[in-house]
Nucleic acid binder design. Structure first.
Lengths: 338, 338
DNA sequence: CTGAAAGCGCTAACAA
DNA sequence: TTGTTAGCGCTTTCAG
């Protein structure tokens, strides 16, 4: 509540000097520095963020943009948020979660208002309209995710290609030869073109084909029902499948039940591996799901760093940071049946 | 990027006039209004939120405070967030999700900076230190939740008392006489004293006792394992239990499995009812969980309204808004066995 | 090393 | 009905 002027008066210096010690902008003798700090303490000076922002043309707020549709507030999402917020705070920024529509229509108002210094985009689609908007607006941004061609954009992302390949490696080493992939059907929704799905699917098809493995792809509807249905479809398509990758948390339970219902024991007959998910999710299931755990926290941290580097002019080069998921094996995977 | 002055120049009026039409602060003739609006459109005037905030001493930003510990980013949480954000936006405010530590230590810096006009507190504990901080800071706030004594505070909350009572009503009507309640053990964590748990537990004990029903309370550890263990403990405590209320989403799967493993079919032998949860969660299970669905969206909306009424001086009286969960029956409940 | 002063872009009296 | 103008609280040259 105390203003800088009041602090200055109390310390017997000018307001400029106070500003210098607050921001470390210029050298001030230890003696006056001490006087100023004492005054600040006595007056409980906190500094008006808004005034500072107006004068410096920087708010030190960055926004993590969250699409208002498709309530995919997964554990991984919250890891992004929490870790990015932590890192931002360490570097003197505030990170807030800001809901915006996925088409990017209100982005304009948000950003042009001068309220945020930069934004982090998540849940990125292959041809995400929001990046065009942000580019046009000329606001610094970083992606958690990648568009189809992100070579010119700063991003951090899960390395889906590597993740899928090592998933298959792992299961193949356990003797599995017949694979399936279950994922969400996003066509016709605002999230159509969701990059993680497309990359995962492409890689899955490519790798299984290249290795002469069977690779069946099935999409699942919402909830447990979607998972059950997917299980039936899957078994209809390939009754001898022994290894299933799931990339849809909310239907994994249904999938497990569906497999049981069809007489397949997990993991004795069929192994199930959850892709790009979290330990939290894995532990909610029985049998506990073997999972390729998404590096949510590390990516969130890196995203914040990438953006803040850009804002602070510490940007050496365009950040292109890819990290694969790491295997956390549990009861749902086992060697292929003989 | 265009400033108000530029708009004024282009429209041939003073900056004050532009301000009036932008804010509707004063009557301006339709003719000049039109000219100003045209100029705004041509210059793509967006208005600098920061400058406006400094001059008007209001940022029109409200923060939904989210505790940095206990990553309980449940579907209901995200409903609070989304619906509150929507309502705020309708009323000309921005709602952002702001991570703060549960002890309230950084609240001070956040709020004193003048960045937010008011805050909504969630995940409230019985004796939440954050409300004292907010009160001392003299910043407008509203709770989603209630402290032990919230008579003097504006709040919206789930009516846990009614919710539990109707849950028991419902199951009792189905013939159940032996109840159990499973919830999380938060003792020793930063979320100790979490109000929903305590209220639920108290009501459960009171109502079962008053009606001469058996009421067993069990706490569960994290994840599916916690649920399984809880099932065993529960059955050890009351082997004849037929109705279980669960208020811990991540262990319901384990609970179901634990019951099966102990030879209890759901719902033939034991009915399971999920408390204050979401349809999303319900649908992730098999059998699908009967659920007392939390009115997340309505509460989020009301919370935003309550706070904004306060900010806009439209506050008639202290909002004390309680809403019970609504039953959504699915496969996991049935009449008690004969 | 410290101070004076000109803004940052907008709001809101107060005048006209 | 519209314009003038003094701030809002801080940053940042530019002098001294």
């Amino acid at each position: 509540m105390a203003t800088m002027q009041q602090v200055a008066d109390r310390a017997g210096v000018s307001i400029a000097t106070v500003s210098f010690v607050v921001n470390g902008t210029k050298y001030v003798t230890p003696a006056t520095t001490a006087r100023v700090q004492a005054a600040m303490r006595e007056l409980k000076f906190r500094g008006n963020v808004v005034a500072r922002a107006l004068a410096s043309r920087r708010t030190r707020i960055i926004a993590l943009l969250f699409p208002t549709t498709g309530n995919r507030f997964s554990p991984t999402t919250s890891e992004f948020f929490m870790s990015a917020a932590e890192r931002a705070s360490e570097r003197g920024y505030h990170l807030v979660l800001w809901p915006v529509d996925p088409a990017g229509d209100d982005l304009d108002d948000l950003v042009s208002g001068g309220l945020v210094d930069g934004v982090i985009l998540m849940e990125v689609r292959m041809d995400d309209p929001r990046v065009a908007v942000l580019t046009a607006l000329d606001v610094p941004f970083t992606l958690i995710g990648r568009t189809r061609d992100s070579s010119g954009l700063p991003f951090v992302d899960i390395d889906f290609e590597t993740t899928i390949e090592s998933s298959i490696d792992h299961l193949e080493a356990l003797g599995h030869r017949r694979f399936a992939l279950v994922l969400e059907d996003l066509e016709g929704t605002p999230m159509a073109g969701y990059a993680p799905h497309l990359r995962t699917q492409d890689t899955f098809r490519r790798v299984t084909a290249a290795r002469g493995l069977v690779g069946t792809v099935v999409t699942a509807g919402p909830g447990s029902d979607g998972g059950r249905t997917a299980a039936s479809e899957l078994l209809a398509l390939d009754p001898d499948v022994t290894a299933v990758l799931v990339m849809k948390d909310d239907s994994s339970a249904g999938l497990l039940v569906g497999l049981y219902a069809a007489g397949r024991r997990v993991p004795e007959d069929v192994s199930v591996l959850s892709i790009a998910s979290s330990e939290t999710n894995a532990d909610q299931h029985y049998p506990r799901l073997s999972t390729m755990v998404a590096p949510g926290r590390r990516l969130g941290t890196r995203a914040a760093d990438a953006l803040i580097d850009q804002l602070d002019g510490k940007s050496d080069e365009l950040p292109h940071f890819l990290l694969p998921c790491t295997l956390r094996e549990a009861e749902s995977t086992a060697p292929a049946p003989a």
